[in-house]
Design a protein around this nucleic acid. Structure first.
Lengths: 126, 126
DNA sequence: GGCTTGCATTGACGTCTATCGATTCAACCT
DNA sequence: AGGTTGAATCGATAGACGTCAATGCAAGCC
């Protein structure tokens, strides 16, 4: 399942090569800029809470009407943060009647997790 | 030198502390603020390049004098970014004679990686 | 001592960003 | 059609952030 629109950031079409990871080799400018954009999207408490609320949802989808009242922020502000998360490729959304539903894009999250991991899941764990 | 604020990796605390991960449960305010601070430190291309240059170093240590000339930025700017990375608990440093050496703190990186991973050990071949 | 090098700190400046109120757009409902 | 609700967009504003030149500080060297 989950054949959503995973067409987010160019995985490694022509520039990214093979996603070396943080400890493997120094980043070039392009990789650093792209990854920094992703981390910047995560670098806000409100967006992090929004993303966790979306990603931890059992059904995989959350209505904006369930997200907005969880914060003491105005509706435009929440909408703004959701837009940034979507532009970063961390979530996607779809309008269904009156309501808009958001879901997480695990590919992007796992990509960042792989990038940050120092011990590459090979023997000698911990 | 003065004591910096390396109090980032609070592994105990009282709020959950299970490090549930992004998809496990919604974050509370405290966790979101703490993690957002870490991601914010990663949300800059220069800092990401600096961190990768430090973390990918074989010996584990890098002299500032090797980092600064790799950027077309002033020396104070590089020093500023290194300070932010250190305050976030991502790196640490030590003065050795005239030079200052930096190294990465893998614990913080792995913590973030664990937090972001959506599929725990789900070998998905690319 | 005085000089030089390496790095951190300070102060200032321009830009980016988070937030809001007001407005607009989309869909539903009489 | 008009009215209502849910969500995105627009403009404006206060604060945060990245960057630099100038300065300070520590360590080595003459």
């Amino acid at each position: 399942m989950s054949k959503q629109e995973l067409v987010v950031l160019g995985q490694d079409a022509e520039s990214g090569t093979c996603r070396p990871g943080l400890v493997a080799a120094p980043l070039d400018d392009g990789q650093a800029a792209e990854l920094a954009g992703l981390f910047k999207a995560l670098g806000d408490p409100v967006r992090l809470r929004l993303l966790s609320m979306i990603a931890s949802r059992a059904g995989g989808e959350v209505c904006v009407c369930d997200l907005t009242p969880a914060f003491e922020l105005s509706q435009p502000t929440i909408s703004h943060h959701l837009k940034l998360l979507r532009q970063a490729g961390l979530i996607d959304c779809e309008r269904r009647g009156t309501w808009v539903y958001y879901w997480a894009l695990p590919a992007t999250l796992d990509r960042l997790a792989d990038f940050l991991r120092t011990s590459s899941t090979s023997g000698a764990g911990a």
